[in-house]
Design a binder for these strands. Structure first.
Lengths: 186, 186
DNA sequence: GACTTTATTTACCGATCGGTACATTTACGA
DNA sequence: TCGTAAATGTACCGATCGGTAAATAAAGTC
């Protein structure tokens, strides 16, 4: 089953939106860079907003799949939680790294009631659910609270890697995470 | 010395850009909402980009002044560092809260070489310098590393307050910060 | 081979984008 | 009161915005 034209479009739109921003990348640019005519694009998606929602859905799947497969390489729950920050470090080192697609989406669509903002928030919720499972396995007294704290470090590291002058925010985040996890076995 | 028309423009533009986003808020909208004609705006600023840079400069001053005056209400350095997160909590509770202006700027101008992106990064650098002074006063073994970790929590809390489902990210960040500060006196 | 779906090109729509020309009005200092 | 600078409204510029019409060209299904 070859990737359909629609799937190609969503994947390429993801790359372009991530690099340029949602408002800055117009439908004409997408058409020019993907080689897919505007007419075809608007046959698959009623509006630019619909295309963005499809892009965010794809990114959500890709990112969570990638992150948790990297984490599962560690053997203990505690090791998996620390491995999260190693994975971040590799991501930050990519030359194409431009922060988190969902933070960018929320920045460009600041109203929480906007569908794009809401879908970005949903990604963060799904992520939290998966991390909370692991903090529970790790034997935390309050797995939800620990997961929230670890994810604060994760979001902070992403923002700082994009915006900051720091050398290695993932390393700092891992060190802080290790301190938060110090009471746990494994 | 009354606020000049120019200062009024920058302050009002700040509010509108913060609420709508940089790309989404056009010069016509700014003119309509501020009551200042486009002609006058372009007499003060050669381009929209110049106006945005002035807005970021104003926001940098206002935000750092506000934050550190709130922190200085605490008496010990350690107390000041924890007070940072109390101040964040009050900020997040404001109905107009829409994340951090500089994170938004970096999101909309993802290229680190872009002047707007660079100026946003400068804000984070200035903030780090001030926090590092306090972590040094607090007697940290590695004041720079501690400051970096605390600021990771700060950035994470801001993003999560805007995007997340969490009730009180400032409280979580403060709890995590307290754990990182637990070895310090005060 | 006929038929339907999918993708294509080209040209276009009204609205808005950032930015400007120009003539007029307001306001203040000397 | 005069002169000058600041601010104004109106009207406009070419380019781009998101989105569409219509006619054609492939491509796969029966």
């Amino acid at each position: 089953m070859r990737p359909s034209k629609r799937d190609e479009l969503v994947q390429n739109a993801l790359t372009i939106f991530y690099r340029e921003g949602f408002h800055a990348a117009g439908m004409d640019l997408l058409s020019a860079e993907t080689g897919i005519s505007k007419t075809t694009m608007f046959k698959h998606f009623r509006s630019k907003e619909d295309l963005i929602l499809a892009v965010l859905k794809l990114r959500d799947e890709q990112f969570r799949t990638w992150l948790f497969s990297r984490m599962e390489e560690a053997e203990t729950p505690k090791g998996q939680l620390l491995a999260l920050f190693d994975a971040l470090g590799e991501w930050f080192a990519e030359p194409e790294f431009r922060s988190c697609m969902f933070i960018k989406a929320a920045s460009e669509y600041p109203d929480p009631a906007h569908p794009i903002h809401a879908q970005a928030a949903e990604h963060k919720r799904l992520l939290f659910g998966q991390v909370e499972k692991i903090t529970a396995q790790a034997g935390a007294d309050d797995p939800a609270a620990l997961a929230r704290m670890l994810l604060l470090l994760k979001e902070g590291a992403i923002v700082t890697a994009h915006l900051g002058h720091e050398k290695d925010p993932a390393k700092d985040a891992k060190a802080a995470a290790a301190a938060l996890l110090s009471g746990l076995p494994g």
